[in-house]
Nucleic acid binder design. Structure first.
Lengths: 340, 340
DNA sequence: CTGTTAGCGCGTTCAT
DNA sequence: ATGAACGCGCTAACAG
């Protein structure tokens, strides 16, 4: 048996409540007693029982991290999600909170989330989005009055807190980079679904064109599934155009690497024949051939800020939702180069 | 306020204990009552309070995942650790356990682990090893009588449970593959520390040589740090040998990709001039140029089995330690090829 | 079969 | 400044 507060009290010849107050630094306990209690606690190796404290204080000091990821996301972008997790874990640790992992197998158990809320397993939740619609989860959490923050996805509803990367800004940055390199016909290979990530990046792409006075040509857009087959087809059709694009902006690094490979299979050289841009800035983008120009998202920062937002939620009452868009960064490598 | 068992009891005109027993399916409660209770619970949206249950049952149904990773490990191999985590999370979820994440910033707080044990935050622990010595943690957990399983590192002490990949077998497989391709001078670029992972892979390398009757030449061994500088130097010295190696077996995929890059810088062609083998089977090994031949570790399986081992610990009394070595797989890609 | 009683370990009144 | 008493929500021993 581990040592309890009662053992401590007996050992010191004090009452349990005095010891408790001393440990929690109450004002009406003499300094001398406090010191004695702390000394004895350290000496005997006392640590308060988590469950008892949870029950009494009605707080768990735990944050749930709910992963809502599509299958491909999970496999392809683990670096991304792991980095978010690290950011969140570090921020939580500093505030003496712990992270509990919940993998929500896409609505497999619809009331899993309900149970988490009702049985008070955690004090709040970080919703990790991965190309999946979150409205169901968001509604439930709101209804259950469980504090939560969405990470890496912008949410329309102004009541909902989120921390996301500037996808529109990134799309713009990437496109400007290509435009400034002399490209005029730039293809965008995006997702099928017009989720916020995809539509924002596309919006940034369009804005950049507008800024430079280049006409937007819808025929340069492709909306494909994640698998290489879809991308292969997209590239075939792009290259079959009368005036094929001289640059391809892919939705993310994974797609961009596929694009690289497919272009090489077709005997095209990157960046000489076609330039390629990615998005995310994952580490494999630097080891591809050629190394990928891309947009870097501050992923660890995303997790960190989401956690801090949640912690603010806990400490203050009646606060405003936190809605943060983090700046991204253009990384120029060798898959793009000024034309001729 | 969420609904409690007392609300349920009042609502049904039953006593609290009867409701509790009904919910927990005790034998001495009539079927009719059980059904009524369950129906009411569902209707009113009752979920047992986690903290209260933890306190009473003296179990948390939580498993701590303790990350002991060196800094480079964390950044480079997130795919690896995330996959382990997913395996563990899935296995835990099936058994209705949750995972709590603890990132142990390399002995930053030495008694963090102690507190986790003493305050009973979790029922057991999965120790994730990442090129770091675990003896301190292992001793503490043993002493605290906290059930635990080490994952992805073989542990000498026969009392300790672990689940690890067959590093020796993998080293042997990789080396045999190169030998069978006709190579006779194969370099091994390993870690500085002779941790189990490194020494096992090296042992496998040596065994393969023995099996094929090739003399082991210590001059072909390099023990370097993780950074590219160390690897660059290793390669320089290897190529400066009177009889330089025709193949390089790198400790892991990250190193192998660095090797690829460095060889290319020097104008050497892979696999024609030098063959390269990696280890791990991370996804970026398939997108490098050329795609890497490597040894695949069943990472998700590692996490899954570790969790299951821990769960067995919980269910049985006085059980034997679980000590599992999982088979690995040779993946042949384009960085190796039969000679001439 | 059902209810009464008694805690789990801790934090928080309210007396003294 | 300290201690006695109560209860958080639940489960388990013991009655009836």
């Amino acid at each position: 048996m581990a040592i309890t507060i009662k053992d401590l009290a007996d050992h010191l010849g004090l009452s349990v409540s005095t010891v408790s107050k001393a440990l929690n630094d109450y004002g009406d306990i003499s300094e001398r007693t406090k010191q004695q209690v702390h000394a004895a606690a350290k000496a005997l190796g006392y640590f308060p029982d988590a469950a008892a404290r949870n029950l009494r204080r009605k707080e768990t000091r735990r944050i749930g991290v709910v992963y809502c990821l599509s299958r491909t996301e999970t496999q392809q972008k683990s670096e991304f999600y792991f980095a978010e997790l690290r950011g969140a874990a570090n921020a939580a640790e500093i505030a003496d909170y712990n992270l509990v992992l919940y993998t929500l197998a896409s609505a497999a158990q619809p009331d899993r989330l309900l149970r988490i809320c009702q049985s008070k397993e955690v004090d709040g939740i970080i919703l990790m989005a991965g190309g999946v619609d979150l409205t169901g989860q968001i509604n439930m959490l709101t209804q259950q009055e469980m504090p939560f923050v969405v990470v890496s996805q912008r949410v329309e509803d102004p009541q909902v807190s989120f921390v996301a990367a500037d996808n529109a800004g990134g799309g713009r940055l990437a496109t400007l980079h290509l435009l400034d390199a002399g490209h005029r016909r730039i293809a965008y290979i995006g997702r099928v679904s017009l989720d916020p990530e995809n539509s924002d990046r596309l919006a940034g792409y369009q804005q950049a064109l507008t800024e430079r006075g280049i006409a937007f040509d819808e025929r340069l857009l492709r909306h494909t599934s994640d698998d290489p087959a879809g991308i292969r087809e997209a590239i075939s059709s792009l290259l079959a155009m009368p005036e094929p694009p001289t640059a391809i902006f892919a939705f993310n690094d994974n797609r961009a690497v596929s694009v690289l490979k497919i272009l090489q299979e077709r005997g095209l050289r990157v960046p000489d024949d076609v330039a390629v841009m990615g998005f995310d800035g994952l580490s494999f983008s630097s080891t591809s051939t050629p190394p990928l120009s891309t947009i870097f998202q501050p992923v660890t920062e995303l997790g960190k800020l989401a956690t801090q937002a949640l912690l603010e939620h806990f400490s203050q009452e009646a606060q405003m939702p936190v809605r943060k868009i983090l700046p991204v960064e253009l990384i120029v490598r060798s898959s793009t180069r000024p034309i001729g």
